[in-house]
Design a protein around this nucleic acid. Sequence first.
DNA 1: GTGTTGCCCTAACGTTGTTTGGTATACTCG
DNA 2: CGAGTATACCAAACAACGTTAGGGCAACAC
Lengths: 223, 223
Amino acid sequence: MAGGRGLTGGWGPASSALPYFVSLSPVSDRRASRHQATRQQIIDAAWALARERGLTGWTLREVADAVGMRAPSLYVYFEHKDAIYDAMFAQGYAQLLEAIDATPTTGEPLRVLRRVARTFLAFCVADQARFQLLFLRVLPGFTPSPESYALAEEVLDRLRRMLADAGIRGRRSVDLWTALMTGLAAQQLSNDPGGDRWTRLANRAVEMFLASELPERDAASRG
Amino acid sequence: MAGGRGLTGGWGPASSALPYFVSLSPVSDRRASRHQATRQQIIDAAWALARERGLTGWTLREVADAVGMRAPSLYVYFEHKDAIYDAMFAQGYAQLLEAIDATPTTGEPLRVLRRVARTFLAFCVADQARFQLLFLRVLPGFTPSPESYALAEEVLDRLRRMLADAGIRGRRSVDLWTALMTGLAAQQLSNDPGGDRWTRLANRAVEMFLASELPERDAASRG
DNA sequence: GTGTTGCCCTAACGTTGTTTGGTATACTCG
DNA sequence: CGAGTATACCAAACAACGTTAGGGCAACAC
């Protein structure tokens, strides 16, 4: 039914009641930057625990311990646990954006898409908790903030452009690509964590995809 | 590194210390069947809540309420919450097995694989919580019991046979198929829940897959 | 009819996310 | 420099969570 809520769909802009920094407008710059630094320490600690015990396998008290605080003090920096997840969500997509930007987009389609696939899969497989947070709807009741979600859309936009450069255009083709890539990553992480049983199918998957979505190229290369 | 822990990989047979029914060997048959019936009621209530609020978005007290008990009484039927998840896991795969068995496997490969894909995607999309429980590693610390896991292997086995009947053989091809299907399902559920933006790509995906994994057929059909 | 077992309860434990209310420290401004 | 205000932290406590302990009542076995 419903079908499609905006291009990236899914989470969409939610009930946005702005305040994501609990303490808004710290007056001095020194204060502000120290605040920001502590915030980042908290996020880093949360990531470390999430990698160890799973996305939902850590507690506020553990994070607090890791940064040398008591749990209630975390509320100086985040208004609730979900706000930490939101910051992690944003940071995760920022990292993916970096990885994407570092991927050369020149050359023939096959080579470009192979690079894109390798980059994406390496990113996913490097951190199961991050993969779940960014691509799966795992946290009950969690919705990324509009600011964080914008980063996700930026990533998709960047990907769309790369695919277009390689001759792949149209929503259906892009959707098929994302399904293929997240599917490989999900299977790898769920059924062979630490291994490469699915990631090593990347090239095969890319060729399959290209042969079908860019048939001229395929026909030409065949003779 | 590690690469592959048995064919289905991933969860594998874990530290199996048998007891999954808390009260083993109820003496009378009447008693036993009533016990089993209550167990099923609990599982059904858990499913209903999981569908409403997410796989991890329900509590034992809510389940107990739904079946007219107090939370501690659930421990008569399950030794901990994870045991309920385990029973849900088993039931989920049993349902998938049913769905698979109801899918005709005769006809030309394209038609068969289309049917298989449609069946699988419909199954996944019908219940996000079930999809996450069966195919994603979402619950921190949860490992299905050997009994339950055997059902998952049975499903994969059945799928392998169906693909083989259609001319698709070899672990890599099967792995690529599962990645493609779970990828479509995951994207559908995560980015367009309730819609059909990805599921309607099923036929396109199947054709792409067949053209690459069964090239003779494709070449022949092309002229 | 007596003894055992299964089923369900209340009470309570430790832990979780979160709120309250307080206190020092760090900063701003007169 | 000194008064006043944010900021950053804390201990104590809240309700809700999964889970354990201990007891009572009914259904069964012999």
